[in-house]
Amino acid sequence: MRVNPKKISLCLSILLILSVLAGCSQNKNDIVKELEKQELSQNTENYPMEVEDDFGNKVTIEKAPEKIISLAPSHTEILFSLGLDAKIAGVTTYCDYPEEAKTKEIIGDYTAINLEKIIEIDPDLVLIYGPGDEESNNRLKEAGITILGFMPESIDQVIDTIKKIGEITEKTEEAKEITDKMIEKRDSIAEKVKDKDKVKVFYEIWHDPLMAAGPGSFMDELMTIAGGDNIAKDAEGQYPQFDIEQLIERNPEVYLTSKDSEEKTVESIKARPGYEDITAIKEGNIYILDPNIVSRPGPRIVEALELVAKAIHPELFK
């Protein structure tokens, strides 16, 4: 087990204080003050901290953030998983997991962010998905607000993002515990399917026009790890349009998608013109997955991997 030198230092300090107190008559207030001083010293030694986000944006974090705003559901899930719920000062309307996220102040959605409210809250840190809007970013920076953008596109990148946010917020141990479990689950699933024949899989991002999960997307990675052969792996771009003729020709054995509308059902997919000749359709291997799990690159990405693996190789998960 890895020993934390900070904790050793703090414990030795406490023992030293107690031994001194045993030989004199210091009162309880002296003990409390000394312990608080030691804890403050331990909590501030990592700051100021230089941080660079996924888009080359370099910032200096002066102290552990006390008020954090998340502008993406995946980032919100990361913050909650790290035990930072008390420090979350604002989220978007789409931040609905865990359930406690719905109790946080809403400062906007994907299409419109209330910059005035963010400035009024005066957070120590705003986490955005992707590079963000340049004009909005500049306005927040002018108000002295620190912004960091992350956009992981693989399990390894999600793990790196969790670790980086954990480091920024003094939750390195929690981040390590979370990511170790993620790695263990990913590797366990990969081990389970490694000797199975590859299964031809298609993942539908959108249906009109038909769009696929292409090379470089995290769903492409999930299908590959789960023992699938993505029939759109050679398409142009991460989320390309995909011709119906090509879909029929490549004939996937498993058809995956997520519940992006109430109208999308297994029956509605079966009823699409030309689909009746596809093996996945004929054999009933159509899976409509939970979008909140499979479309968010956060701690639950390994749960998404398991859902995909169960769809591709159900016989291994009985």
Rank of each mutant, 00 (worst) to 15 (best):
R2H: 15
P5S: 11
P5F: 07
S9P: 00
S9A: 13
L10S: 06
L12D: 13
I17F: 03
I17W: 09
S19P: 00
V20A: 14
L21Q: 15
A22N: 15
S25E: 09
Q26K: 07
K28T: 09
E34A: 14
K37P: 00
E39K: 12
Q42M: 14
N43E: 15
Y47M: 06
Y47C: 03
M49G: 03
E50N: 08
D53F: 09
G56S: 08
G56T: 02
N57T: 15
K58Y: 00
K67G: 02
K67H: 01
K67Y: 06
I69L: 11
I69E: 11
S74E: 02
S74R: 12
E77M: 12
I78H: 02
L82G: 13
D85N: 09
A86S: 15
K87R: 15
K87P: 04
A89P: 11
D96R: 12
Y97G: 12
E99H: 09
E99L: 09
T103V: 04
E105N: 02
I107P: 04
I107D: 01
I107G: 06
I107C: 09
I107A: 01
I107K: 00
T111D: 08
A112N: 14
E116R: 05
E120C: 04
D124P: 01
D133I: 13
E134N: 08
E135H: 13
S136C: 05
K141V: 08
E142V: 01
A143F: 05
G144R: 12
T146E: 11
L148T: 06
M151N: 07
P152L: 05
S154L: 05
I155Y: 03
I155F: 07
I159P: 11
T161H: 10
I165A: 00
T169R: 01
E170Q: 13
I178R: 04
I178S: 04
T179V: 14
E184C: 00
K185Y: 00
S188V: 00
I189R: 06
A190G: 15
A190S: 09
K196M: 03
Y203M: 08
E204W: 01
W206A: 12
L210M: 11
G216M: 04
F218Q: 06
M219D: 01
D220L: 03
E221A: 07
E221C: 09
L222R: 10
L222P: 02
D229K: 07
N230S: 06
N230F: 03
N230C: 10
A232T: 12
K233Y: 11
D234P: 03
G237F: 03
T257P: 13
S258Q: 14
S258W: 12
K259N: 15
S261T: 13
T265D: 05
I269F: 15
K270N: 01
P273D: 12
G274W: 10
G274T: 06
I278G: 06
E283H: 01
G284P: 02
N285I: 04
I288Y: 05
P291G: 10
V294Q: 08
S295P: 08
P297T: 07
P297C: 05
P297R: 10
P299M: 10
E303C: 06
E303N: 10
L305Y: 06
L307F: 14
V308I: 15
A311V: 08
I312D: 13
I312A: 13
H313Q: 07
P314A: 10
P314L: 07
E315L: 07
F317N: 10
